[in-house]
């Protein structure tokens, strides 16, 4: 079937009747709006930026080609690596916690334990519909020492309120905001994957005397491994780009959330506060490279493990 269609739709280039040409061009016409936009808004900016990162503009002397000098500078830039360290610390705890909870919620929702499932499915997911700016605003107020309810409750109980926006508390505080926003979304993706597993598999295992936990660990989780890996990769990419929440909270805790607290904040401040567009482009590519390496490492480790099982 597929061979037949291939030959029918892809004639040899030698036969060039107008009709054939028209027919061959049809898929490209379908693709045209996307591809034109893709080139203008993704490919071209990427090339433009890559080129930009090879120059340096100085107040005296103007713009000069400096080769990979900006990248050499980026490698030695403690501001960048401090930011990378912050997001890695953040992600090392936040991603496993978030995906772990998302997986447990999805497993419970997919089993026969609960009755009113829709409430839980939608309720857990609702924070995803909240813009991250508003999520950061809400949690910023909740964390606040002046009228934050957490501080109010602590005072009422005679306890010292926890300090969220200090150098040691700010990463957990940010991690909590991301967990609050994205657990439900990941839960739904994993839930959808679980729903596509044929029920007969569980029934066979149950007949063999497997417990619910055993079925979850040995059958359900391995079967949705691709979905888990996908959520993991998207979480890694998202974490390394952390920007909105720290940027909104900067106004509350300016001393802790400095302009290079995350790599993305650093890119932003280099470009828009000090107009160093060329160097900020180099930082952005370095960040993309780090992201790519981490995502691939994660992908290959999880896939190898999955194959061994």
């Amino acid at each position: 079937m597929s061979v037949a269609t291939t030959t029918a739709r892809m004639p040899r280039p030698a036969s060039r009747s107008w009709r054939r040409f028209k027919r061959n061009s049809i898929p490209y016409l379908f693709l045209a709006p996307f591809l034109i936009g893709f080139v203008i808004f993704l490919v071209y900016p990427l090339i433009y930026s890559l080129n930009l990162s090879l120059y340096r503009t100085r107040l005296v002397g103007g713009t000069t080609y400096v080769g990979l000098e900006n990248y050499g500078r980026a490698l030695q830039d403690t501001n960048l690596w401090e930011g990378v360290r912050n997001v890695l610390l953040f992600g090392a705890v936040q991603i496993p916690v978030m995906l772990g909870f998302a997986l447990i919620f999805a497993l419970v929702l997919d089993s026969a334990i609960l009755h009113r499932k829709t409430i839980f499915r939608l309720g857990n997911f609702l924070p995803f519909a909240v813009p991250s700016v508003v999520a950061a605003l809400i949690w910023g107020y909740l964390y606040g020492e002046s009228f934050g309810p957490i501080a109010q409750i602590a005072h009422a109980l005679g306890l010292t309120p926890p300090q969220f926006l200090t150098s040691s508390g700010v990463i957990p505080a940010l991690a909590n905001i991301s967990t609050w926003q994205y657990t439900g979304y990941n839960m739904l993706i994993l839930f959808a994957a679980l729903q596509s597993i044929p029920r007969e598999l569980y029934e066979a295992a149950a007949v063999d005397g497997a417990s619910g936990v055993q079925i979850a660990l040995k059958i359900r989780i391995p079967l949705i491994a691709p979905a888990i890996i996908l959520t993991g990769i998207f979480s890694i990419i998202g974490t390394l780009q952390l920007f909105n929440e720290p940027n909104v909270l900067t106004s509350i805790a300016p001393s802790v959330l400095n302009p290079h607290f995350t790599p993305n904040l650093y890119v932003y401040s280099l470009a828009f506060r000090s107009q160093q567009f060329d160097y900020s482009a180099a930082i952005a590519f370095t960040l993309a490279f780090v992201t790519g390496v981490l995502a691939s490492v994660f992908f290959f480790i999880t896939r190898q493990r999955g194959e061994r099982q």
Binding site: T5, M10, I26, Y28, L42, S49, I233, L240, Q241, L287
Partner: peptide
């Protein structure tokens, strides 16, 4: 449709999903 460049184009599109948006934002 089966057309010349289909797999290559799709591969490029898919790869772009994984590029952080920061890289595009400033340019």
């Amino acid at each position: 449709y089966r057309f010349a460049g289909r797999n290559l184009l799709f591969g490029i599109v898919l790869a772009s999903v994984f590029v952080p948006s920061t890289v595009f934002a400033v340019p």
